[in-house]
Amino acid sequence: MSAEPDTEAVAAGLRRRLADQLEEGGRLRSHEWRSAVEAAPRHVFVPRFYRETDAPGVTTWEPVTQETVGREEWLRLVYTDATWVTQFDGRDIDWADPKPISNAVPTSSSTLPSLVVRMLEDLDAHEGMKVLEIGTGTGYSTALMCHRLGSESVTSVETDEGVARRARAALAGSGHTPHLLVGDGRAGCPGDAPYDRLIATCGFRSIPPAWLEQVLPGGVVLTTLRGWMRSLGLVRLTVSGEGASGWFSADDPSFMIARQQDAPESLGTVPGPDDGTRRKATYGPEVLTTSGPAFMAQLAAPQARFFSLPVDGGQAGTFVLDSTTGSFAVLTVTDSGRQVRQGGPYRLWDAVESAVATWEEYGSPNRAVFGVTVSRNEQTVWLGNPNGPQWPLPS
């Protein structure tokens, strides 16, 4: 009877297959990053994880380990182009007796390799460059950079001590020794500055000023901008002496927001049935969940969040609340059309409708037509060119 292939031999074959898939999909474009994908043992960085089930009702995740699904299936899943959740609600998982999890918020994961590799290709980092990574996570993307650039060129910041500890062990076990530290990613790591490149694998509401102080002029910042309602998208900025500027990607990747920028627990005060003034609405609540219009809504109402509740005798209503200013909008759709009731110092739905109308006036473009300018005093997203329609990012 022939011996069963060992784990590393099977994993090496799966890594080559994954590299083939990423190359065929156009995400993996260079020999150097292909070599990194073929070398980095993702199964070391993601030895246990959760996957979402297709059970109806509340979203539920089930644990995946060698013991629960068998070694062959575990390895196959690890090297699938998928995101695997490794933590919920900022708490470590008891892997001695893992159970299905519901009603929880993922707070750490191993991002799908196609997105990781695409971002690394877009970062355009080469030998001799120093890179700062914000969000170590499992350490898999850190390992890819260490293979490509050398451990001495990579600094990575992780906000969660337990997550950082596991990543450090996995990196060391894979022969990599980057500079790892636990801290607030918004502060970067001034001790290792300056950097040629900065890449963030969590979302930020705006560009932290410390990043621009630590990245050399001509250097690149690659991050996801996002708000409390949705992700704005991936942006690539070139740093200058005055700040930075660049463009959004056409894609819509959505990273978890940095923990220090989570929305306040309180949504704000739910308005009473007679609060505010009513008018017909040009756009209904669908703009909050449709990709292009929702991008505009996030720009127009950066402090707001939305949810649905019964109003006016049981009719469904969508509440848009700004807990910072106390402004609100309540949207309903009836046989007579769309209605909005809004109040507070800031007319939320007026701003959203104006932004969506501008987007439509410009031909409903994708994100690649939007850019970002960052200066010492303000940060703005603009449409078409820096002199076009603008929306400020929250400070």
Rank of each mutant, 00 (worst) to 15 (best):
G272D: 07
P41R: 05
G314K: 01
P209Y: 12
P56F: 13
V117P: 01
T223F: 07
D275E: 15
T238P: 06
P47M: 08
P178H: 00
N103M: 08
P5S: 07
P208N: 14
R42V: 06
W391P: 04
W382L: 12
P209Q: 13
P273C: 06
A9C: 10
R376P: 04
T142P: 08
D274Q: 14
S2V: 09
Q87H: 06
P389T: 03
A96D: 14
W359G: 00
Y195H: 04
P41Y: 09
A357I: 05
G371W: 01
T380Y: 09
G25K: 08
A3G: 09
W359V: 02
I207P: 04
T159P: 00
V330F: 10
R341L: 10
R34S: 08
V154I: 14
T290I: 11
G175Q: 07
G137C: 06
E161I: 02
R367T: 01
T107G: 04
Y50C: 13
S231N: 10
P47W: 01
W74H: 15
G313D: 14
E23N: 04
A12C: 12
T177R: 12
S249V: 03
Q315R: 13
V85K: 01
A304E: 01
L237Y: 05
Y50R: 03
V131A: 02
D184A: 03
T86C: 10
A104T: 06
V330N: 01
P98G: 08
A3Y: 06
E73C: 03
E265C: 02
V78G: 00
R15V: 02
A40P: 05
E152Y: 02
R166M: 13
W247G: 02
T277L: 13
T177P: 00
E353K: 04
D312S: 12
T380L: 14
T159W: 12
G219M: 05
A82L: 12
E242A: 14
R367D: 00
G384I: 06
A12E: 14
A96W: 09
D122T: 05
G337Y: 13
H147E: 15
D251E: 15
E133W: 02
T223N: 08
R17I: 06
W74D: 02
G13D: 12
L299W: 05
T177K: 09
I199C: 12
V131S: 01
G317Y: 06
R165Y: 03
F204K: 00
L331Q: 04
P209R: 11
P106I: 05
Q298A: 15
L120S: 03
A263C: 04
N387W: 10
M129N: 10
A172T: 04
Y140A: 10
A36I: 01
C146F: 08
T223M: 15
E121T: 01
P41V: 08
G326S: 11
L288Y: 09
E62W: 04
M119R: 09
H31F: 12
H176Y: 15
F49L: 14
T53N: 12
V64Q: 10
H43P: 03
T138C: 11
I134M: 07
D89E: 14
N377I: 07
T80A: 15
T289V: 15
S327F: 10
V64E: 13
A368P: 04
S231V: 03
D122K: 07
H31E: 15
